[in-house]
């Protein structure tokens, strides 16, 4: 078991003929991900390294039974690509594309809800269940199968932490990079709930950042619902307050968004918060009593 993806997951690549799409398709394929097709409108019938290319997501789903899709199309078209995958009945959509306009993401949200589509991202590195399935741009090499779950708003910082976990003997069940955009798909609480219900996950590492109040909400959720231990790290503790936060930003979260507030919320929920990334593996072991 794991969350969201496993060796049965059948993956489509939207934007497979683009530079990034083609490169990461071959990386995912090498890792062992079951890539069943790609989409590139107008190039249906061709193939990329033996992977069949379709004109539309619906055609690809009908032909392959795919249940997941990863998006590499350029930002102006990414919102539409998410919608296309959702209307084609793809269950899990992972949008790697960076720079998607916020309103395009907002417009997609009611449709995703209506169709029951799970979205990761946009602007995220993707997710991985080690030794089974990698969707996105994560460096597969640093991951190791195990029982620690990981959720992160960041990319390379995630790799840094995963590398530390792996080298200290803590393998991972599933790691999910949820992305750093203000409006994104699945978030901390959605994933914490999945980890709580996953028999293969013993502990969860949560890597947050300043801004918004998703970490505070996660802390509240952990306090009320989680039985499994959670260890957190918040990036941006040294960022000057107020940077890039207008009146309305401060208002909507009632003045929250700073690292101090997030750390305080976690402490109150019994979550151990690492002062620096290097402390994370030790804290996980402490919580697990190993």
């Amino acid at each position: 078991m794991s969350i969201l993806i496993n060796k049965e997951t059948k993956v489509l690549v939207q934007g497979i003929t683009g530079r990034d799409g083609a490169f990461h398709t071959s990386k995912m394929n090498d890792y062992g991900t079951n890539i069943v097709g790609g989409i590139s409108p107008g190039k249906g019938g061709s193939d990329v390294g033996g992977i069949p290319v379709f004109d539309t997501v619906q055609e690809a789903v009908d032909a392959t039974g795919a249940n997941a899709s990863v998006i590499f199309v350029p930002a102006p078209f990414a919102g539409d690509a998410i919608l296309e995958a959702s209307y084609a009945g793809v269950e899990l959509v992972v949008c790697i594309t960076e720079g998607v306009p916020v309103q395009d993401m907002m417009r997609a949200m009611p449709v995703l809800k209506q169709n029951g589509t799970k979205l990761i991202g946009a602007n995220c590195p993707g997710l991985i269940t080690p030794d089974e399935c990698l969707i996105g741009i994560l460096p597969g090499k640093i991951f190791k199968k195990g029982n620690t779950g990981l959720i992160s708003r960041s990319g390379t910082l995630t790799y840094e932490v995963v590398n530390m976990l792996t080298t200290s003997g803590l393998g991972q069940s599933t790691c999910v990079g949820i992305g750093g955009d203000p409006v994104a798909g699945l978030y901390f609480i959605d994933l914490l709930e999945m980890y709580e219900n996953d028999p293969e996950t013993d502990a969860v590492v949560l890597i947050g950042e300043i801004g918004g109040d998703a970490e505070e909400q996660a802390a509240q959720y952990i306090k009320e619902k989680m039985t499994k231990p959670v260890v957190a790290f918040i990036a941006g503790q040294s960022a000057p307050p107020g940077k890039r936060m207008g009146h309305a930003g401060a208002i909507i979260s009632s003045g929250s968004g700073t690292a101090e507030e997030k750390i305080k919320a976690f402490n109150e929920a019994g979550v151990l918060v690492a002062k620096e990334p290097g402390e994370i593996p030790g804290l996980v072991k402490e919580k697990l009593g190993i």
């Binding site: 992160s152 708003r153 960041s154 990319g155 390379t156 910082l157 995630t158 840094e160 750093g180 890597i207 950042e209 300043i210 790290f233 990036a235 941006g236 503790q237 040294s238 960022a239 002062k275 620096e276 990334p277």
Partner: peptide, 25 residues
């Protein structure tokens, strides 16, 4: 100079944690 926004923030934090002051992100 860092690759990735989260790691860049964590790097600034680390400098501050050990008594320095970052000049930038």
């Amino acid at each position: 100079m860092v690759n990735g926004a989260g790691l860049a923030m964590a790097t600034m934090d680390m400098i501050k944690l050990y008594g320095g002051e970052p000049a930038n992100f």
